[in-house]
Design a protein around this nucleic acid. Sequence first.
RNA 1: GGCCCCGUAGCUCAGCCAGGAUAGAGCGGCGGCCUCCUAAGCCGUAGGUCGUGGGUUCAAAUCCCACCGGGGCCGCCA
Length: 641
Amino acid sequence: MHNPYDELIRDVRIFLESLSAELGKDITNYLNSVTRAPPNYGYLAIPVHGLIREYGNLEEVINKVPKPRLISRVLLINGYLNIDVNINEYANLVLGAVNSLGEKYGVSDKCPRASYIIEHTSANPAKPMHIGHGRNAALGDSLARLLRFCGSSVRVHFYVNDCGDQMPYVGIGYYVVKDLVLSRVKSGVKPDEVIGEVYSITYAVTEIKRLSKQIEQLSNEGKYDEANKLIGERDEWVSVINNFLNRDRELTESLIKGLGKFEDLPLMIKQWSRAYEEGDEFVRKVIREAVDLVLRGFRATLDRLGVYFDSWDFESEVAVDNGGVSRVINELLTRAPQYVEREDGALIFRADKYAQDLGLWDELRLPRYIPKATLLRSDGTSLYLTRDIAYALWFWANFRFDALIRVIGSEQTHPQAQLRLALHAMGYHELARKIMHYSYEMVNLAGMKMSGRRGVYVTLDELINETKSRVMDLVKSRFTPEEADKVAEAVAVGAIRYSFVSVSPNKPLTFSWDKVLNLRQNSGPFIQYTYVRANSIIEKAGVVPRLTNIPSNIAGEEKELVLILGEYPEVIAKAAQDLRLEYITEYVNRLSLLFNSYYEKYPVLNSEPGIREFRLNLVNAVRTVLGSAMEILGIPRLSRM
RNA sequence: GGCCCCGUAGCUCAGCCAGGAUAGAGCGGCGGCCUCCUAAGCCGUAGGUCGUGGGUUCAAAUCCCACCGGGGCCGCCA
């Protein structure tokens, strides 16, 4: 496999081996501390302060030792071995590899090659996806693309959480205003948007009814302080309703009117919840209809972002209907009865005790604190965690995989730990080890807290549309309307995906329009722009001539470009091993900065013969590597922008 | 209170896992560059007690300890 940087390191090793022989001591472990040398000091550097202390001046020995093919010079400065590259040889190697491999360049034997299942995004089918799901989707999808690029087999799953507590609200609300919802959808409103409103309004109405009842009761008992507290709470929900009245009077009023017919809405919610889990035909049909509408909306949004799934797993099917939940309970009771307790009729798994007794912290990568886990409510219904365990078993029964990567917010650290512990307790040790919680921190609104139930959030659609319209201002003068639309969409998607994936996932991300709408350097559009420039040169050239000769005096920028291009397979391997996509955005930004700087300074098409051929190959290599990285990051490629 | 994550330039972040030479980018600021392959670009410039205090080391943004500050979780929600 072609990994120029690795070949260079092999030569460094050879050099160190020769040096070892000369010194009579194995110093090849210094290979682990190879770093980049500062500008003008060559390419690589190895700190050898210890060696100098031990052997005094090393210069003589260094000069005595022959230099392997790819190394042009080794100098001892400030306690460092500064190693420079034989750039002609190396350029041949790098450009040759890129030319012959094309878009496959970057794959090396350091890439993990295994079989993965990635579950990501998995937004609750009750309301439109918000920007937090955007982060999740961008991470999950790019991880999938990265691992696939490496030659791994990857299946991508979306877990449709159709048994959650919010589903009866969606179902009942939808049932009440079904005709209105469908006519809205027919007239072009996004289905997830309509259902989202239905959900929020239904939830608010239910809360108001529930609180009113409590308030009445407390007042009758003379507990006015407590009643007043709840009145404040109720007022908040009333103001939510008022907001919706301003936004969509027709829908809100129909819902209030329709829901008003129900005697005890809070009770009805509970009944629907149970009925859904038990497979009641009518309730199933209504909720599934609403869920399908939401998913239709999800798909439209995810399509725009270039995010695709191999499978949409309905919780009701993979965890409930197949008897998954009862199997979880039974196996746990059989295999680890001493860790299962009853508490007020509810069934509790003592995950805390289990972790403590078996000391599984390292093996299952657990936090030091584990809460107890409730698996069944006192009314016998299951909880999310229980169904999640069943879902894991469903994967185990239906697929073979080396790792199951689940992209889930960090706020679920404890439940995800409980999940692994429960599986372990049930005897699925291997499965428990293979499940990886790929955690990411929240996306916050500057100064605001997002709340789905209160309808306070920036949706992914708004994000895409707003970014697109900003881009549109820039491109509308340059293209026909249809072209402009395509370009604006592609640039918006590039901007959004880059901005999500360029920040380390374990950093909380404060969402700001300024940041996303920055279309300059260190952004998706900057990468796209650089690609367009490189691409445009290649298109104008028509063909990339065969590289027969590397000019003897290539420019400093050209040398830098060759070096960075040679690092690509290393970056990919590292990113794939560590599952860190920021390595790729960082790399691609560095490459773009360098290339743009080169582009401004040196003509390619109009350069002298001999030079021209080399430069075209170099530009083509930049284009290829940029294109490859963009594919992984999901940043659309354009030929004009 | 316990557990997890974070703290680096006015702002957003990279670098920390595998310690090494003057701590890097971008945004924003200031000053320049379009008869020439797309100026969404390029060049220059200002801007930093790497949260604080100890420790380990020839060497600490990086490793260890304590503390401070921010976010998240600690539900018969997801």
